[in-house]
């Protein structure tokens, strides 16, 4: 038994359990807390895939910034538990069936993809997914998308203030 497989199994199980809690929790605050744990376990999975930089950004941006945003909004709107337990309506059953169908279709396709990870040379292993390599690529080859994203964040910042402000 491989330690990596055990870690993957644990993280995958916990990720799916937390995601289930996000969907089925009655109170939005419970959903938000389950979302935090989903992001943390996903960061663990990223580390297993040697994506250390992405894992750190996941914790900083998602589990830090975005979650604080969600919690502030829940607090601001003073949301309680949803009053009624959801009844299985036609729309919900159709939604569940569509979900199962999509997963089946995805699984059939994904199982046809070759499963072996790339074997990397020792030099490539040392530099794979480090912040130095990623920074070099982002600031040379992907410079224009990077600047576009910074503009997008600026627009989002101004837009959020304008939309949420009660009176301008």
């Amino acid at each position: 038994m491989n330690i990596e497989l055990i870690l993957f199994g644990a993280f995958a199980l916990l990720t799916l359990l937390s995601a289930g809690t996000v969907i089925f929790a009655r109170s939005p605050i419970n959903s938000a807390m389950a979302l935090v744990s989903t992001f943390f376990f996903l960061a663990g999975i990223y580390v297993l895939l040697w994506a250390h930089t992405v894992a750190v950004m996941q914790v900083l941006v998602y589990a830090g910034a975005i979650m604080v945003l969600f919690l502030f909004v829940i607090m601001l709107l003073n949301l309680g538990e949803s009053p009624t337990r959801g009844k299985p309506t036609v729309a919900r059953i159709a939604g569940g069936a569509a979900t199962v169908g999509l997963f089946a279709a995805l699984a059939i396709i994904l199982l046809k993809i070759p499963a072996a990870p790339a074997t990397l040379s020792t030099d490539a292993q040392a530099s794979f997914g480090t912040i130095a390599t990623l920074g070099q690529v982002i600031f040379t080859q992907w410079l224009l998308p990077f600047e576009a994203v910074s503009l997008l964040l600026l627009v989002a910042m101004v837009g959020a203030v304008v939309v949420a402000k009660s009176r301008i």
């Binding site: 950004m57 941006v61 945003l69 969600f70 627009v155 989002a156 939309v163």
Partner: peptide, 12 residues
């Protein structure tokens, strides 16, 4: 991740 942050800000 960056686009998701922008989406969350505007959506909320």
């Amino acid at each position: 991740i960056a686009v998701a942050a922008a989406e969350a800000a505007i959506g909320l």
